[in-house]
Design a protein around this nucleic acid. Structure first.
Length: 267
DNA sequence: ATGGTCGTTGGACGA
């Protein structure tokens, strides 16, 4: 099972990139964030023509999430209990994943939680407090969900760089939004719940980032942060065989400011 | 050089 997270920063603009990338990479599941469109405008036909089922939770102008999959999604949840939020940032679904060629009759129920965690703007701002409160509610929800779903994946744009090695200039970013101690503590809470950062299960080259600001020629200078993640429950981590960031689409013409992050599981 | 870049929108705002 190949699963991917990609903040596309407007699916309307990025649809050609998504379709091109799907064609070559052929993931089983693709979680999108910042689709920035209402449900009525979602390009269902283009996605289905590419061979994928799709569910989405959109809104006008901002936010919006979607899950593309080879199989049909069940038990779809777009609102976290206890988090009264009109911003469309969450989409959870259960997928039936075939468990390898050796036993084609075997299937695994994988719970996918696609999140677009708030950016937080700046430490101390109203949006920062909204981010931390949002994260607290997500942790509470995960506490119960992990008991229900042994095969659980939490992925998306976390807007958190977990460690210094996830930042091009750790001193410059130290204490700032995306890197502040309270945000990183919330990331650790996910880890404490048994969810592991699949990217760090493997030896990685230094300076692996998933987001580069459009300004200051940040991509050309590789001034990035790793803020998009795929976290997995212990049963899934044991089956994880690789994880990588695909920088290639970030170099395409008119790109998203984020790159796709990929994890592969041998179920 | 007191900006710088996108996307959505039709002037700012969010990232």
């Amino acid at each position: 099972m190949k699963i991917v997270t990609w903040n596309v920063n407007s699916l309307r603009v990025r649809l050609p990139h998504v379709l091109d990338w799907l064609k070559t990479e052929q993931p089983d599941i693709l979680a999108l964030q910042e689709i920035k469109m209402e449900d009525k405008d979602f390009p269902v036909e283009d996605i289905e023509a590419a061979g994928y089922s799709v569910i989405y939770s959109g809104q006008k102008t901002y936010n919006g999430v979607a899950i593309l999959s080879r199989g049909v999604c069940g038990d779809v949840i777009a609102d976290i209990p206890g988090l009264d939020d009109h911003q469309r940032r969450v989409l959870c679904a259960t997928l039936d994943v075939a468990s390898g060629a050796a036993s084609p009759a075997m299937h695994t129920q994988v719970r996918v939680m696609n999140v677009y965690i708030p950016n937080g703007e700046a430490v101390g701002s109203d949006k920062y407090r909204y981010k931390l409160d949002w994260l607290e509610k997500l942790v509470i929800y995960l506490e119960e969900q992990r008991a229900i779903y042994p095969y659980l994946i939490l992925l998306g744009d976390f807007n958190i760089a977990p460690e210094a090695c996830d930042v091009h200039d750790p001193m410059l970013w130290d204490g700032r939004v995306l890197c502040s101690a309270p945000e990183r503590k919330m990331f650790e809470r996910f880890v404490d719940l048994g969810l592991c950062d699949t990217f760090r299960l493997f030896e990685q080259a230094p300076n692996q980032f998933s987001w580069w600001d459009y300004r200051m020629a940040a991509f050309r200078r590789d001034l990035g942060l790793r803020i998009d993640h795929i976290l997995a429950s212990p049963a899934l981590c044991a089956a994880c065989v690789s994880s990588r960031i695909d920088k290639i689409p970030r170099a395409w013409e008119r790109p998203s400011d984020h790159a796709p992050v990929v994890a592969v599981f041998d179920l």
